[in-house]
């Protein structure tokens, strides 16, 4: 700021005096700040009421909604002892029946399960054909 700016300086000083006279009291602004925090504006009240209404409506729908099964229509709950895993069949591997009985000396279950002679002939024929 230099000497040539005096005109602007004076104009701003006049404005400052006018606005200073209109300024609200410091104590009024400073002391009402707590009231302002506590005070709820109509928009806040409306928003809170809408939130509360939505919460109550959701809770009522969940409790008494049309999709909720009635007391008598409830599906029976399976007992823990009767429950079976849906992947239980995966444990039943091919040939596992051979391992179930107690092994005996001088007896082979593999021989007992050998294919019938009819099947052997069919395999022999296949070999001849090509």
């Amino acid at each position: 700021m230099n000497g040539n700016d005096e005109d602007l300086h004076d104009r701003f000083a006049a404005l400052r005096r006018e606005e200073g006279a209109q300024a609200p009291e410091f104590a009024r602004l400073f002391n009402t700040r707590e009231e302002r925090v506590r005070r709820w504006s109509p928009a806040h009240v409306a928003a809170a009421a809408v939130c509360l209404a939505i919460t109550i409506a959701t809770a009522l729908l969940l409790v008494h909604g049309p999709w909720r099964p009635q007391q008598g229509q409830r599906a029976p709950v399976a007992s823990i002892t009767a429950w079976k895993s849906p992947t239980d069949f995966l444990l039943d591997t091919p040939g596992s029946e051979l391992l179930r009985p107690m092994p005996e000396l001088g007896f082979s279950r593999v021989d007992a399960k050998a294919p019938a002679p009819e099947n052997k002939n069919r395999q022999a024929k296949r070999k001849v054909l090509p």
Partner: peptide
């Protein structure tokens, strides 16, 4: 701080305006 804020309150209001 309160004292200083009080002293510059009118200028602060001018700036806020």
């Amino acid at each position: 701080l309160l004292g200083e804020l009080g002293l510059m309150h009118s200028n602060s209001f001018g700036w806020a305006l």
